[in-house]
Amino acid sequence: MNLLPGIAPAVILVMWRREVLRYVRDTSQLFGGISRTILWLVILGLGLGAALREIEGYTYAQFILPGVITLNVLFASMQCAIALIWDRQVGLLREVVISPAPMLSVALGKLLGGATIALVQGIIPFLFTPLIGVEVTLAAFLLALVVIFSMGITLTGAGIVLASRLRTFEGFGAISNGVIQPLYFLSGSIFPLRGVVGGVGFLDIPEHLRVELRQLGIYAIGGGWVVQLPVWLQVLVYANPVSYMLDTLRFVLLDFRQLPLALDLGVILLSPPLAVIASAHAMKRMTTSR
C-alpha cells in the first residue's frame, strides 16, 4: 500500500491541518500581517515615495510591494517553524516523536502548513494594490502565488533547521531582529541594487545615455539619479537567497528585476526540495536527542 517509504498521506494531512487550525484561531497573526502591510506599504511606501518619487519608473510603494509580501512570508514561516522549540519541550512534538509515524511525513505536514499560512499572509498586500496603482493580472497573481508558496516552503524549512538548533526560547524578538529583519533588509526589498531614482525637476535622460545605461543593465525611465549600492552591501544582498526569491516576485508582479533570471528561477525551483530534505533531517535529529 505504501510505495514511498516515509510518506504517509494521512500523517501529512493531519499535521498540515494542525498548523492551519492554529493559524485560524490565532487572530493576532492575521492582524500582524495587515498592520505590517499598512505600516510598510501604505505609510512608508506612500510617505517615503512622496520624497523619492520614482525608482526605475515605479513609485516607491510599487517598488516595495514584493518586499512587503516577502516580509509577511518571512514572519509567517518563521513563526510557524520556531513554534517547534516550544512544541519539542512543552508541546505536542514529544508525543509525535515517540509515535511510529514517519518523521519525513511529519516534517512535510509542518512545511506545507507553514507554506499555506505564508501564502495567506502573503496575499494580504494584494488587497492594497489598487491604493498604490498596481494592476495585477490573474496570470501574474497565480504566478506570484507559486513564487510565494516556494518561498514559504523554503523559509519554513530554514526556520525548522534553526529551531532544531535552539534549545530554549524566551521570546520571538530575537528571531525577528536577528533573522527576519536582516533577511528582509538585505534582500533588495526596500532599495534597488542599482538604478535610476527619479526626483522632481530633473531633466529627462537623453536617449543615447538611456541606451548606454541599458547596456550596463540599468533601466532608466524618466529622469533621475543613477544610484548604486556600496560594494559591501551588494555582496550581502547577492549572498542572501531571499534576494533571488524577491527578485522573481518583483519580476512577476512589476515586470522588473535586477538579478540574473536563471539564478532567480534556480532558487525558486531548487530551494523547496532542499528545504524538505534539510528540515526532515533536522526534525529527525530533534527526535533522537533530548
Binding site: 500523517v11 487550525l21 508541546g91
Partner: peptide, 18 residues
Amino acid sequence: ALDDRLTAVENLEIHAVL
C-alpha cells in the same frame, strides 16, 4: 505533551493518525 491551541478531540485525532 498536548497542543493547547487545539481541542481535546483534535489532539486525539492527531494521535489516532500518528
